[in-house]
Amino acid sequence: MAENGRASSQGGCTGDGEVRVQLEVRVEPVGELRSLQGWLRSDPEVRRSATVGVQGSAPRPGEMGTAMDVLQLVTGNGWSAASFVLALVAWRQTRPQRPRLEIHRGDTVFVLTGGSHEEVERVIRALDADRDEDGGR
């Protein structure tokens, strides 16, 4: 898991007390993005609590070229970091070459490369901790 990457996604509390989390997911290779979008939209837990769409994103620092697509996820109160991360890991396991996944939340980047139990737990704990901080604002 890496930290201090660049992303424009954030979380926060709406006026009605609902906590929203906005994440960006980048997939390498980029060609796998549509497959992941379909997988997440078909997952009942993710579909129930989040909106999943593909958005353009500015190139990362040091990259040249045009914007690349990212998967954007906007959640509500019923969102579960565990369900989301497990859905990502399950999708990744269906791919022949196990793509690298980056989850961007604000200025923090979580990277899933191996899908080990420890890596998955670390990402879930970090996403839950970030969400708890947003709810307390």
Rank of each mutant, 00 (worst) to 15 (best):
L40H: 05
P96V: 05
G31T: 05
R98Y: 09
R95E: 07
E24W: 08
L33G: 09
M64H: 10
V109L: 11
R137K: 03
W79A: 08
S80G: 05
G62C: 08
H104D: 09
G62T: 07
P44T: 01
E3R: 14
Q93C: 07
N4L: 14
L36R: 05
R60I: 09
T94E: 10
D134W: 12
V111F: 02
G106D: 04
G53H: 07
I103V: 15
G76N: 07
E63R: 14
V30H: 09
R41A: 11
R105S: 11
A82R: 15
T51C: 07
G17C: 13
P96C: 00
G11Y: 03
L88Q: 02
L112Q: 01
N77R: 11
V46N: 00
V30S: 13
Q72D: 09
V123A: 02
S83D: 15
S57F: 06
D107S: 14
P99F: 03
R98M: 10
E133G: 01
L23F: 02
I124D: 06
E118M: 09
D128E: 15
D128K: 07
R26H: 03
V109S: 12
R20W: 10
R131A: 06
R100H: 13
V19F: 00
W39C: 01
T14L: 15
G15Q: 14
D132P: 01
S9M: 11
L33K: 01
R60V: 08
G115P: 04
Q93E: 15
E24N: 11
P99D: 01
R26D: 05
R6L: 14
G15E: 14
G38E: 04
V109F: 00
Q10W: 14
T108F: 06
I124M: 09
G15V: 13
H117A: 12
Q22V: 07
D16C: 10
S83T: 11
G78N: 04
P44D: 05
F84Y: 09
G12L: 10
I124F: 04
F84Q: 04
